[in-house]
């Protein structure tokens, strides 16, 4: 992918703009519902999943 793509949020079905330089594993936020999304695949087509919920030992 070299140009930004609009795809569907798997949570709210809103439009999510995905940058052209996105990589697998990258985390994005849906501007409509605020869900954290994860890029799971770039091909054969761009696939976003909802990112895992924060667990108790997550943090810095």
């Amino acid at each position: 992918m070299s140009v930004a793509t609009i795809t569907e949020c798997p949570v709210c079905a809103g439009d999510v703009e995905v940058a052209g330089d996105v990589i697998v594993g990258e985390l994005l936020d849906c501007g409509d519902c605020g869900a954290e999304l994860e890029v799971r695949a770039l091909s054969p087509e761009l696939r976003l999943d909802e990112a895992p919920m924060a667990a108790e030992d997550w943090g810095e």
């Binding site: 594993g25 990258e26 985390l27 994860e38 895992p52 997550w58």
Partner: peptide, 11 residues
Amino acid sequence: VCTGIRAEEKL
């Protein structure tokens, strides 16, 4: 090693 790529990892 990461759990998804956040802004920090991308930087």
